[in-house]
């Protein structure tokens, strides 16, 4: 049995999906709730950096608990964002990464060096308060 997906003509144009960025105290929280395509991931990086600039946030928590895979592109975006944010004096903490995603990521050859991680959002907030409290 061979199924063929409907041809593209019947599908809508690619649209960039925006992820909401929340601000709490002096840091940002970004829950990634959708399967990001490359353009939307790149947009997210821009949005985060701009938000840091506008709000003077000193930290960024990216919640990836519902993200089902991180490939080289999204991995690169996350790593870069952490380094770029650091240059702007903001720390990045990733939280909630699923075991399967972490295993795949390191097998792929990526380890997101320099990014802090927490088990869950609660842990990330504690970690952030600790980092910023020093």
């Amino acid at each position: 049995m061979v199924k063929k997906r409907p041809s593209l003509a019947s599908r809508r144009e690619s649209v960039i999906q925006r992820i909401p960025i929340l601000k709490i105290r002096n840091y940002l929280i970004i829950p990634i709730q959708i399967d990001l395509d490359d353009l939307s991931a790149a947009q997210l990086q821009k949005d985060i950096l701009q938000k840091i600039d506008k709000t003077g946030a000193q930290g960024v928590i990216i919640d990836v608990s519902v993200v089902e895979m991180i490939d080289s592109y999204l991995g690169r975006i996350l790593g870069e964002t952490a380094r770029m944010a650091a240059l702007m004096d903001a720390k990045v903490v990733l939280c909630g990464m699923q075991p399967a995603v972490a295993i795949t990521l390191v097998e792929l050859g990526l380890s997101l060096e320099g990014v802090h991680s927490a088990l869950n959002l609660e842990g990330a907030i504690t970690m952030m308060e600790n980092i910023l409290g020093e």
Partner: peptide, 12 residues
């Protein structure tokens, strides 16, 4: 070493 890295990625 991969295990250590993956453990770190999930926050432990």
């Amino acid at each position: 070493i991969k295990t250590v890295e993956a453990v770190r990625l999930i926050g432990a």
